[in-house]
Computed example of a mutant assay.
Amino acid sequence: MAFPLTSPDSPFAPNDLDGVYLPQEDTCLLIDALSSVDLAGAQMLDLCTGSGAVAIAGALRGADVTAVDSCPHAVDATRLAAAQAGVNVTVAWSDVAAVEQTGFDLVTCNPPYVPTPPGTETSAAGPSHAWNAGPDGRVVLDAVCAVLPRLLAANGTALIVQSELADVDATVAALRGAGLEAKVVRERLIPFGPVIESRRELLVRGGFLAPTSDKESIVVIRARRGPRSKREAT
């Protein structure tokens, strides 16, 4: 599959993406889900932006985009890629929970979501900060679910991509518990990549994988905030 925008073969790719998560199938699935949202003039926030591929896709469709990542390499790569793509993207170095701006019409997120049993933190070469997500894969996902109601404007939408290994039902339940409408809107079955393969034995032992599995399902979950209540409006 040829990946858009900031893939190594793209004219928009920075020359040096060392230490940055390159666009993969989950990136493409999230970009595909953008087609369900009217982005013309929308205020968009891309959390865990990585290479900036999703942020740039939103900007190319007319959104006013802010991109955030806690990795300084990702911040630099996104700024460069946006400049090469000829779009304006405001890029900030920040943890998810520390984002202060609110009122976004769309929030997108491709967070770290790979379960990381003790001893697997360095089991695959690459920017491990982009996929290692704690023993159950939910360290960042839970933080995103908690902060979304504050970040979204009235009638705002969020699109989150994750693997089934990090418990899709738990994400949907957390979003609904936070007062948002939530459901799976995209799904794709993909072969295991090098990260999962490198820690397969421990993931099987931990109950995340069946011993014969060689594929995982990745999904996009859409969450929506309703109109502001009278209390919020005052």
Rank of each mutant, 00 (worst) to 15 (best):
G126L: 02
T49K: 02
R188W: 05
D32V: 12
H73M: 03
T108S: 14
R228H: 13
A55K: 06
R186T: 05
E100M: 03
D38N: 10
V204F: 06
A59Q: 14
N155V: 06
Q84E: 04
V147H: 09
V75L: 11
V87R: 13
A92T: 11
P118G: 02
C145G: 05
A74I: 05
G86K: 02
A124E: 08
L5D: 08
P191Y: 13
D64C: 15
A77D: 06
V147T: 02
P149I: 14
L60Y: 13
Q24W: 06
V140M: 00
P127I: 03
A125S: 03
A13V: 02
S217C: 12
R176I: 09
I218Q: 01
F104T: 08
T6K: 01
V91D: 00
Q84N: 12
G19A: 10
Q101Y: 10
H129T: 07
F192A: 12
R186F: 14
E25Y: 00
P135T: 05
G134V: 09
T6R: 03
P111A: 04
R138G: 08
L148T: 07
A143L: 13
P72S: 03
G41Y: 08
G226Q: 01
S163I: 07
E121W: 11
R199A: 07
R176F: 06
Q101F: 05
S51A: 04
V65I: 13
S35I: 13
G137F: 01
S229P: 09
G206L: 14
E100Y: 03
A59C: 12
V54N: 01
I196E: 06
S35P: 07
E216H: 12
R176Q: 15
D26K: 09
M44C: 08
A2D: 13
D105R: 07
P191V: 05
K215A: 00
A59D: 00
D142M: 00
T212D: 10
